[in-house]
Amino acid sequence: MTDTSNWRERAGRILLDPADPDGEPLTTPLDRRWLWRIEQVIAINGGNDTMRQLAFDLKQYLNETCEHHWRLYAREKDIPSHTQCLWCCTVEWLEQS
């Protein structure tokens, strides 16, 4: 089977959209967005030891070098207000629980 589509058609919105899910401008470079997407696909589909190790190494690298894109979450019931990185999911609590 010959695939005549290009990467933009398979990339997903998070790679190409100029804004995050809240409408805030995304300044994260496209190459970093691609690495996060690759990490997620490998983590989900990596079946052998080599792929699992590659996924682990890539995740560690991306977490250590993450250029955070913070999203603000308001207080909800028992969850205090906080920010969370769109990419590495690091959370910073803005108030005590």
Rank of each mutant, 00 (worst) to 15 (best):
W34C: 12
D78F: 06
C88A: 13
C89Q: 09
F56P: 03
T27C: 10
H69G: 07
E24H: 14
K59D: 02
A74G: 08
A74Q: 15
L30P: 07
D57L: 09
H82R: 01
R33C: 12
F56M: 04
N6G: 11
R32M: 11
W93S: 05
V91I: 15
K77S: 03
A43N: 15
N63Q: 07
R13P: 06
C66S: 03
M51Y: 09
S81P: 09
H68M: 08
T27L: 14
P29W: 11
N48S: 12
R52D: 03
K77V: 06
E24L: 13
E39P: 01
T90I: 07
G12K: 09
W87D: 00
R10G: 11
E9G: 06
D49M: 00
Y73H: 08
H82W: 02
C85W: 02
I79A: 00
E64C: 02
L86I: 08
W93E: 07
W34D: 02
I42F: 12
I14G: 04
W7P: 02
L35W: 13
E9A: 08
P80D: 03
M1Y: 06
H69M: 01
L26V: 15
R8S: 13
Y61H: 06
T50E: 15
E24A: 13
L54M: 09
R8V: 03
W70I: 05
Y61W: 03
A55E: 05
L58G: 07
R13A: 14
N63Y: 01
H82Q: 04
T27N: 13
T83F: 02
W87N: 07
P25L: 10
I38F: 14
D17I: 00
P80Q: 02
N63W: 01
A43Y: 04
K77Y: 00
A19M: 03
L94K: 03
